[in-house]
Amino acid sequence: MSKHRIMGLFSDFEQAFAAIADIRANKIHGVSVDDVTLKSPIEHPEIEEVLGERPAHVPKFTLMGALFGLTFGFLFLASAQATFLVQPQGGKPVVPLPSNFVLTYELLILFGVAFTVISFFIGAGMGRKRDTLYSEMVSLDQVGVLLEVDESKAQALKDLFKEHKVVEIREEVAR
């Protein structure tokens, strides 16, 4: 049985929310809320009420980046300063801690930010080719609900969308 990808475009978030809530309530047997992708012009954190909490591992990467910046920063500076061994120090320490604290702090932030951005690119799937069902209305003022379902469930899903005053339905056979 072939799989169909169906996207309903709603004129407002409330309708899309209600449609997803119905999917979550198992109104169509065999269609799970885990298969839902919401596309919206603005951020809707409240969608987690029906989609459930989905993972975003950005903070872990941020912590890793900050720790890497801390250790790499200090070691980088200290190894550079170690070359001072061949130069006269005038009684000053080869690895000056006060100045290294300041510089290490800057590198902690630099790598923390860099890892955060990289994790965003990876986690959010940035740089990938856009979905063929993408609608420009989603960046304007409509909310899209996208699912991939069995052919047998396609009509029921479209009917459910219509119940919630869907503006447009787009469909394609999944490859």
């Binding site: 950005v58 903070p59 941020t62 856009r130 989603v138």
Partner: peptide
């Protein structure tokens, strides 16, 4: 390739805040 998916917004929100 931004498409405004819930996954992108979720990561975006955390990234921007951090």
């Amino acid at each position: 390739g931004w498409a405004g998916t819930d996954r992108q917004w979720r990561h975006f929100r955390k990234t921007y805040l951090l």
